[in-house]
Design a protein around this nucleic acid. Structure first.
Lengths: 219, 219
DNA sequence: ATATCATTCAAGATAATAATTGAATATAAT
DNA sequence: ATTATATTCAATTATTATCTTGAATGATAT
């Protein structure tokens, strides 16, 4: 049945789609969008055994979604391409538009914590020039270290309650994390609002900021 | 393992990706991008039994990729959304960039028949205003009937050899068909060049023309 | 060389998906 | 009402994907 070049191409395209067709692999891709990562770190964060994570990574590699390099005894994986992020965005866009369940989850969880419009990247750029805004990165420190918004303060969500003193109550805060579906910034917004801070979320997360060609610091 | 809202969302996104993860379903989507179609017509064109095509269509519907309506005793399917076309474009983009096999097929088949740059939609629009170009739709007549480029001539590829007289040899010809992976326009270009016609392909196909907001005729 | 650590491979159990067949609905025509 | 047609459902079998476990590879450090 797979005669014809069109059929052969569609078979290839389908193999890419199948590689995206797993909750775990999508989550792995979200983490890789932050920057390079080893197998063990990914396995732990996604909640897989190392052997299993390794197999998922190889499926992603065969599908051309990730690439890898060896660094000493570690193997570091990364997204193959900026286009991969675009593909994931297109996927979530279609799912959001057409699957009622997605809408239900969004309203029930996300809108509950922050129903405000997120701050656009352009708006944040303009406001940081005035210096009256604190950019807050609530991801774990190792992800912050690989790359973050210029001038951002890193307080991981888990430490937020105990480090409130580091935040200037007179500044508006703009919080961000891994991307549009990362819960960290939503939790941070809810927690900080309850403490009286003026805080909004940045649209999307670091990978999308970087993909937009905006500057990233990795000191 | 699927606690958390992020996991729940990714599970939904993955279900959309799995629906795209089949050669046959991608081909069905290509046909639906031309316009509404019944189950039997789709089954025949994609080379599936009717029952099987019906099941694939329902997977696509569950994934929010297609919608359907009943018209008398026929059930007509269509793409759920313009965003679906964008998702397929993103999918083929990633596959083209990162899978060597895709490149091999393209060079071996497509570039062999037409290694020239395709005509962009903008260029075609400009040239049709001068009236010196014949726009040639080489899809089957029923697809042409559902929608085609303004002023296009419909000669299905299968009848091209016998209807060469209808083409003015002084006009440049711009041929198009279903989309970037449809072989019809490539075959048409190769056949017409061999006959001495000046002919190029339009970039992509009718669905992308429509998605760009350009006018479509369906007389 | 040997030991150690990170990663991958291989084998097997379980679950999900695909295609086929024949029966069941739902609408239209007689 | 009955018949015909289009589509869907249900049951079956074959194929493919997932996860687990334990062993094998590759690179570094002792």
């Amino acid at each position: 049945m797979s005669i014809g070049p069109k059929q052969a191409l569609y078979a290839e395209f389908a193999s890419v789609a199948r590689a995206l067709g797993s909750q775990h692999r999508l989550e792995i891709l979200e983490h890789l969008a932050q920057g390079e990562r080893g197998v063990e770190a990914l396995a732990e964060r996604v909640g897989l055994t190392i052997a299993n994570a390794s197999q998922h990574l190889q499926q992603l590699r065969r599908a051309g979604l990730v690439a890898s390099r060896r660094d000493g005894k570690f193997v570091l994986y990364r997204l193959a391409d900026e286009a991969v992020l675009g593909l994931m965005a297109a996927l979530s866009d279609v799912a959001q538009r057409n699957l009622a369940e997605v809408d239900r989850i969004r309203r029930h969880y996300f809108d509950d914590r922050d129903s405000m419009e997120p701050v656009s990247r352009e708006e944040l750029l303009a406001r940081t020039r005035d210096g009256l805004v604190t950019v807050l990165d609530v991801r774990p420190p190792d992800e912050f270290a690989v790359g973050h918004l210029p001038g951002a303060v890193n307080i991981p969500l888990s430490e937020l309650e105990s480090r409130l003193a580091e935040l200037d109550p007179d500044h508006e805060i703009v919080a961000y994390c891994r991307g549009p579906w990362c819960v960290l910034s939503f939790e941070a917004v809810a927690a900080l609002r309850a403490r009286g801070f003026r805080v909004r979320r940045l649209e999307d997360g670091l990978p999308e900021w970087r993909a937009a060609g905006l500057p990233v610091e990795n000191a």
